[in-house]
């Protein structure tokens, strides 16, 4: 039962990746693209956690933690650039 629901969950997360990627390509504005990137890294965490359960290996958790940390820093840096980049100081 667990392997079946894991397969279904993989399919759902893959679909989520596709939808976020669509938004990344379509835009239309820079904040939309940053939001899409933000969603993509959270989806990547979901995928890694699922893979960890599927392969019964606790190693993937460390990667998920690193992605969570780096993804947040990336989003904040991009937002800060948008907020301050076009102000003439």
């Amino acid at each position: 039962m667990l392997s079946l629901s894991l397969t279904l969950a993989f399919a759902l997360v893959a679909a989520a990746f596709a939808l976020s990627f669509l938004r990344l390509l379509k835009g239309p504005h820079a904040p939309d693209r940053i939001l899409a990137l933000d969603t993509l890294y959270i989806n990547a965490i979901a995928l890694l956690v699922l893979l960890g359960i599927h392969l019964a290996s606790p190693l993937y958790f460390e990667a998920a933690l690193l992605i969570a940390l780096m993804g947040f820093v990336g989003t904040v840096a991009l937002c800060k650039f948008l907020l301050r980049g076009d102000i003439i100081e």
Partner: peptide, 10 residues
């Protein structure tokens, strides 16, 4: 829920 969140985004 992950899928629905991305659906909202798209």
């Amino acid at each position: 829920f992950t899928f629905i969140g991305s659906l909202g985004l798209a």
